[in-house]
Write a protein that binds this DNA or RNA. Structure first.
Lengths: 157, 157
DNA sequence: CCCCCATTGACAACACGTTGTCAATTCGAC
DNA sequence: GTCGAATTGACAACGTGTTGTCAATGGGGG
């Protein structure tokens, strides 16, 4: 009963998953960009700043948490510091890997997005149903985990 | 019983959805890039070429089908033509909007990806279960549709 | 204590998606 | 048939993610 190889439909399923992921990414990116702009942020900067709202992290720590490359986070973080929205604090545990943390101005910028964020979240939950939204996120998380575990484990950077 | 405004948790749900979408996008992108490279393609070029495997389309038609901007597709399409993997054919219905179609070489490049594509698809379906994979894609599609319908409908380009 | 090696930051080159703008073409209203 | 709006292609500027490379730091084995 075991399929010998590539079951028919599996490729189409993978292609569909990837294409849908690309489309969804584009949509969320557009929405985030639109919400972040009035606060003087971009989607990427909001994302990076959002990662350290509760506790400062090193740049590579943020990269690991977000599943992005260290360099991408580094550049965005440097820009945020240049904007005065974040700062590097000395790291007692590592002189080279400084701690990245938002400034008061940075926190204010993130707070300014709150209302639009909440309004869109409400409309989304209304339109799709909070349970389905929650279930979808969970399913996407499982999918991401599996894909992550499948890309030859040891090819990082 | 109707929540007056922004139910607590809705914002976190939206943030989680967006962050997971970003992560998933990154994973699929990395996998696609790795599969496309040996065939002389990139993820984006594979995607555009894949859109016209069955029938030629205009550049803006591809953009609509993929949910991308016209200009992004245009540049990738021009690069593919420059690579000799696709060509513009005269469009009897529109002298300006030429028809974008793969060349024989372009078809060969896409075919060359087939094995790796099938192998990964099989491993993914094995690991997650074909039904769950299918269900997840469907849920993501619904989510993308809803988000699309929510970003003020009339702000296109 | 010293050396190897993983981690980390810095910098550069490249691919790609987005917005913005302009001219050419097409199509529908009149 | 003509005019105006919409579509389309071209081009440029920008933000962002990626890979690749290098030097500095830190930790663990000898």
């Amino acid at each position: 009963m075991a399929e010998p190889h590539t079951a028919p439909g599996a490729q189409e399923l993978l292609s569909g998953a990837a294409l849908t992921s690309f489309r969804l990414n584009g949509r969320f990116l557009a929405v985030a960009e639109a919400m972040a702009r009035p606060a003087g942020l971009t989607a990427a900067r909001w994302q990076v700043l959002g990662a350290v709202l509760h506790e400062p992290l090193t740049v590579s720590g943020i990269a690991r948490a977000m599943g992005m490359t260290r360099q991408a986070v580094q550049r965005t973080a440097d820009l945020l510091v240049g904007q005065g929205l974040a700062e590097y604090r000395p790291n007692p545990a590592h002189s080279r890997a400084k701690l990245f943390a938002p400034t008061e101005e940075g926190l204010a910028a993130v707070r300014r997005i709150g209302p639009a964020h909440g309004e869109f979240a409400t409309r989304l939950a209304d339109a799709l149903g909070p349970e389905e939204l929650s279930r979808t996120v969970e399913a996407m998380r499982r999918l991401a985990d599996v894909v992550e575990s499948l890309e030859e484990p040891g090819s990082g950077e």
